[in-house]
């Protein structure tokens, strides 16, 4: 079922663009399709995939950003996960983290559970929510040209971006899900583990 205002972007194309030449970008992904999408671009130790802890992705990003102020942190998550942690948009804005950006893959649905409409499919505008919380840089992309224009900004600004993807479901790509492994390899890749 589709609606006239549905996004049209292919989520795998969007995430492939965001993750192209990742360098030493620190990436946190929200449970469900955002984790699969980022994993599908190639597993790397500096990707921290969530398979649960719904609503926590952005705050994990903030913690990393505060701990590593000279590194760039990108949060990639879905609209449902961001909605569950909507208060964190206020907490992050209040804390201030110039090295943190958030990209929300917005299909206006809870894709993992049968594509029920989320609040963005009803009445909520997450870009406006972020702006109202004090994010001074916000954007929405509806075309791949706009995604490409946001790509460098997501690696240089304290930007909150909504990416309007279609509701099409993709084959599941399952990156590692052992949290202790993901945590340990992330810290080792950052060089913060002392043996």
């Amino acid at each position: 079922m589709s609606r006239p205002n549905d996004g049209t972007l292919d989520r795998r194309d969007v995430v492939a663009a965001l993750m192209r030449d990742p360098g030493d970008l620190l990436v946190v992904t929200g449970l469900g399709a955002a984790t699969y999408d980022v994993g599908a671009t190639g597993d790397r130790p500096l990707n921290f995939y969530l398979w649960g802890a719904m609503g926590g992705t952005a705050m994990i990003g903030l913690g990393i950003a505060l701990a590593q102020p000279s590194r760039r942190v990108l949060v990639v998550t879905g609209d449902g996960e961001m909605l569950m942690g909507m208060g964190s948009l206020a907490s992050i804005a209040a804390a201030g983290a110039p090295n943190l950006a958030i990209a929300v893959l917005d299909n206006m649905r809870y894709g993992e559970t049968g594509s029920q409409y989320s609040h963005t499919g009803h009445t909520t505008d997450l870009q406006a929510v972020a702006a109202a919380c004090g994010w001074t840089r916000t954007a929405t992309a509806r075309s791949m040209d706009e995604v490409e224009a946001l790509r460098p900004r997501l690696r240089s600004e304290n930007l909150f971006a909504v990416l309007r993807i279609s509701a099409e479901e993709k084959p599941r790509h399952l990156p590692p899900r052992d949290g202790a492994y993901l945590s340990d390899r992330f810290r080792r890749a950052l060089g913060v583990v002392v043996d």
Binding site: G56, M59, G63, A65
Partner: peptide, 19 residues
């Protein structure tokens, strides 16, 4: 300052990931 306590668990996790 957190809007709800669960944010603090995620914040702490991120801090640990970042060393």
């Amino acid at each position: 300052v957190l809007t709800t306590e669960e944010e603090g668990i995620a914040l702490s996790a991120g801090a640990w990931l970042g060393g």
